[in-house]
Amino acid sequence: MCTLEKRGNIFFLTLTGDDEHRLNPKLIDQIRSALRQVRAESTRGTALVTKGEGRFFSNGFDLAWAQAVGESSSRQRLGHMVNLFKPLIADLISLPMPTIAAVSGHAAAAGLMLALSHDYVLMRRDKGVLYMSELDIGLPFPEYFMTLMRSKISSPIARRNVVLKAAKVKADEAVKMGMIDSAHDSAEETVEAAMRLAEQLIGRKWDGEIYADIRKASFPELCEVLGLMDKVKAPSKL
């Protein structure tokens, strides 16, 4: 499932265990609960690092859970997960602090969306890929998935390869495509780099609410789809 701990001014949200960290209603609820705690305990100069244990950052929605009730009900369960996951993305986009995803394993489908919802994405280069599997398994993209990718993957060619080629993108290639910020040689080095970046960011002691307002203003299309537009405030006090 997941755990939350705070070291100094850095919150660490960890997807625990050696499984695929599939996003089912229980895990989504746990992550949202952790983010509510992060929001409640946030102060000037804090940051969030999200990481996963084992070979996976997250392998997307829990399709086995969706299919456990038969074909007719599995679509309803999948739609339920899609609806539950959307406000989790909104939680991250509106969180009043810098956010960093330390992708130390595979990040696929909704798992990749979870990573891209952070301000910064760091990834290990020795293992793991970024992969949108929907085309391969015959599922359409939810609207907010596409909007998130348009907001976070600026290159049309990179987006084409991700969504219309179902490319499995390794870390160094993802850096070149502008999908992630940096690649590192191991899971440990990825997390360490995320910690160093977090320390740099919290040292600026930014006002978290202003930071969140500027982030939301940077992605107006995404915020509109997520229902955050009415919560965007003008950051300028001039």
Rank of each mutant, 00 (worst) to 15 (best):
R150C: 11
N161W: 10
A174R: 00
A187P: 00
P142C: 03
A194I: 04
F141Y: 15
M132V: 08
A193V: 01
L130Q: 02
R125L: 05
S151N: 08
V163N: 07
S151H: 05
A193Q: 05
M132S: 08
H106W: 10
L116R: 04
L114Q: 07
V175W: 01
G105A: 03
E188P: 01
A108S: 14
D172M: 05
G138V: 04
L164A: 13
P142N: 04
R160C: 13
D126F: 06
A187H: 01
K170Q: 15
L122F: 11
A167W: 07
R125T: 09
P140C: 06
D172W: 06
R124D: 03
E143F: 11
A166V: 04
L112W: 02
L148T: 00
N161V: 02
Y144K: 05
A110R: 00
A109G: 09
A109V: 01
Y144V: 08
D181E: 14
A183M: 09
D136M: 14
E188V: 13
A110T: 05
E199R: 15
E134L: 13
S186R: 09
A194V: 05
A167E: 12
K176H: 12
N161L: 13
R159C: 03
S117F: 03
P140H: 07
F145Y: 14
R160L: 12
M177I: 12
S155R: 02
P140S: 13
V163Q: 06
M146F: 07
I180T: 08
V191A: 00
L112Q: 06
A115L: 04
G178E: 09
E134Y: 14
